[in-house]
Design a protein around this nucleic acid. Structure first.
Length: 268
DNA sequence: AAGTGGACCAACCGCGGGGAA
DNA sequence: ATTCCCCGCGGTTGGTCCACT
């Protein structure tokens, strides 16, 4: 009988974030339901997916929405309704959850207010101000968002939206990436980061231990922040691994401790 | 200083779609 | 054709922060 592991809820801790990011960087996304177990997380797959998609994903723009973005959301909401994922697809680097929150907390009231004002006004010109003032052309810069299909290699990223307007490239090189059979028993891997001018790279290799890199390195979160800033396409689109193989599962059995519901060796 | 209410945001829940078996 | 499983979406909730009284 398979014991249903305890599944934690609530706010994610930095340690959990670290485990999830480290795992996804290393292995990609293959099965959200199975992933938390292998990543040493006591979370549901849905929770992991949500955390990744809404917060940890590298290409997420955080912080206040600009006036232009807000107008775009209003325009698109009017056009598409509450299809937040469709709206998010047209707003670079904003998540559907963020857009939904923005709408529910701010924009909806603003629109209602605008509508009330226009309704109370005898004139008709203001009633369609949003529609008229934010045509598709007006927000074309936002709508012409590159899709992940524009990026030929799973781990090579270009960032046309870099704040500094310089073209930045992120390369994540994962040698032996899915080859579980190649992992030594004392599984070691990690990431090194380098930056030079506008061309910045991220390399993930097997040269240092995961623990060393993410636990005792001087600034893991600095690096993660770097990832967040520079990885400008969806890592989830990366084809990472073939976990369905018997090899995958058999190798993971070596590292997963069912007694603790924790994936021990690779991370500890 | 303490209480209160609103704003904001992260996360959860339930449902439906789509693909695989 | 049917069932099952996974994923993604949208609605909603709960916690935190902050301004105001």
């Amino acid at each position: 009988m398979v014991r249903q592991p305890y599944q934690k809820k609530g706010t994610w801790t930095p340690d959990e974030d670290q485990k999830l990011v480290a795992y996804i960087i290393r292995y990609g996304i293959w099965n959200w339901n199975e992933m938390p177990r292998f990543a040493g997380l006591q979370r549901s797959g849905k929770s992991c997916r949500l955390r990744w998609m809404n917060y940890l994903r590298p290409n997420i723009k955080r912080g206040n929405f600009t006036r232009e973005e807000e107008e775009t959301i209003i325009h698109l909401q009017k056009k598409l309704g509450n299809r937040w994922s469709a709206i998010a697809a047209r707003l670079p680097h904003r998540t559907d959850n963020d857009i939904k929150n923005c709408w529910n907390t701010r924009l909806k009231k603003r629109v209602i207010l605008q509508n009330n004002n226009s309704a109370s006004s005898a004139t008709t010109e203001t009633s369609s101000s949003v529609e008229e003032n934010s045509s598709d052309d007006d927000c074309s810069a936002l709508l012409n968002t590159p899709t992940t299909a524009d990026f030929p290699e799973p781990f090579a990223y270009s960032n046309p939206f870099s704040p500094s307007d310089c073209h930045q490239t992120m390369e994540v090189d994962l040698p032996n990436f899915p080859a579980m059979a190649d992992f030594p028993e004392s599984l070691t891997y990690g990431s090194t980061f380098s930056s030079s001018g506008c061309h910045q790279t991220v390399e993930v290799d097997n040269s240092c231990s995961m623990k060393e890199t993410f636990d005792s390195s001087e600034n893991y979160w600095e690096k993660l922040s770097f990832l967040e800033q520079q990885l400008m396409t969806d890592v989830s689109d990366c084809e990472a691994v073939s976990p369905s193989s018997q090899l995958w599962h058999s190798r993971h059995e070596l590292y997963y401790d069912p007694a603790d519901d924790f994936w021990v060796k690779p991370l500890i």
